[in-house]
Write a protein that binds this DNA or RNA. Structure first.
Length: 295
DNA sequence: CTAGGATCCTGTCAGC
DNA sequence: TGCTGACAGGATCCTA
């Protein structure tokens, strides 16, 4: 679920709570969710929060870095003790919650989806993950760049040149452009939402063979990726910012942001034609059939 | 090498 | 009501 803008929102929001704070205790409730690699984070102080693509990197003062990947359903929820770390709604004023939007944001924690949690002197950080695809992995800070996922990651969208994306489209010339955009080795950070939104921005059909795209179309797609991600980050992670209202009820997250994603049956904001849903690269895919023609 | 499908896991929802 | 299959904001592994 969480894509680059959500992870960036976590990086910024979580920092206010955990930077320079000591991890007093760690409780691991699911074997595969926490990969220690013989290293330890207990007793360490968090010295920095970084992000590469969808990976969050939490640097510690003992030369260890915790790499967090939320995959489909991961969430990080921080609750201050004085606001009620385990009292559900009472904690909303003193918590930071981000990742896959769900009722966990207002639930009693830890709960059945809590895979790991960290106790701080003034609060708790919960790693919840319904499907257990996500993980937290410890590694020496100096070895982060050698981690396979990080090492093979494509550039951040803002650092990428048009020509590089064009070259990669030509290398994956038979694949649908949507599959190429979802490939983290091509470009870092795009997931199912922002791939659909970027293609809508560029008026390109997701099934277009990547090798058939013109340089102009490729430039527009990259511009679209930057634009939709910037918009999301600037609104504080638009996909989850309003998920939980002050009263704890479900908000209209995503609705204000998405032009096509999960809007099948609704009018295209550009031309009014009905948005339709297809399956591309094994993923649910949303397009305006009028604006995005498969040439 | 690339492309495409299965797979990891849990939960929800539509359709019998 | 209870069952079944499809699907889900991700990435890897396997096969052709």
């Amino acid at each position: 679920m969480p894509e680059l803008p959500e992870v960036e929102t976590i990086r910024r929001g979580l920092g206010k709570f955990v930077l320079n704070k000591k991890i007093v205790r760690i409780e691991q409730r699911c074997e595969k969710s926490y990969i220690a690699n013989g290293l330890s984070a207990e007793g360490a102080i968090i010295t920095g929060l970084r992000r590469r693509g969808k990976a969050l990197l939490i640097d510690l003062d003992n030369n260890v870095t915790m790499m967090v990947h939320l995959r489909m359903t991961g969430q990080l929820i921080y609750r201050l003790i004085e606001f009620g770390a385990s009292s559900g709604k009472a904690g909303l004023g003193g918590q930071f919650a981000a990742g896959h939007p769900s009722e966990n944001f207002v639930a009693e924690l830890p709960n059945g989806q809590t895979r790991v949690f960290f106790e701080f002197e003034n609060g708790f950080l919960y790693f919840n993950d319904q499907r257990k695809f996500g993980f937290i992995k410890l590694m020496p800070t100096v070895e982060v760049e050698q981690d396979k996922f990080i090492a093979e990651l494509g550039p951040e969208p803002w650092a990428m040149k048009d020509e590089e994306l064009l070259a990669k489209c030509q290398r994956h010339k038979k694949a649908p452009i949507k599959a190429v955009l979802l490939n983290q080795k091509v470009i870092a950070g795009l997931g199912n939402i922002y791939a659909d939104e970027a293609l809508f921005y560029a008026s390109v059909h997701p099934e277009r063979q990547a090798g058939s795209l013109t340089p102009e179309e490729v430039s527009l797609i990259l511009e679209g990726a930057r634009t939709v991600m910037d918009a999301s980050i600037n609104s504080g992670g638009s996909t989850m910012a309003t998920y939980v209202r002050a009263d704890g009820t479900r908000g209209d997250y995503l609705e204000k942001f998405a032009q096509v994603f999960r809007r099948e049956g609704k009018p295209c904001p550009r031309c009014g034609e009905e948005v339709v849903k297809l399956r591309v690269a094994g993923r649910g895919t949303h397009i305006c059939p009028c604006c995005q023609v498969n040439k």
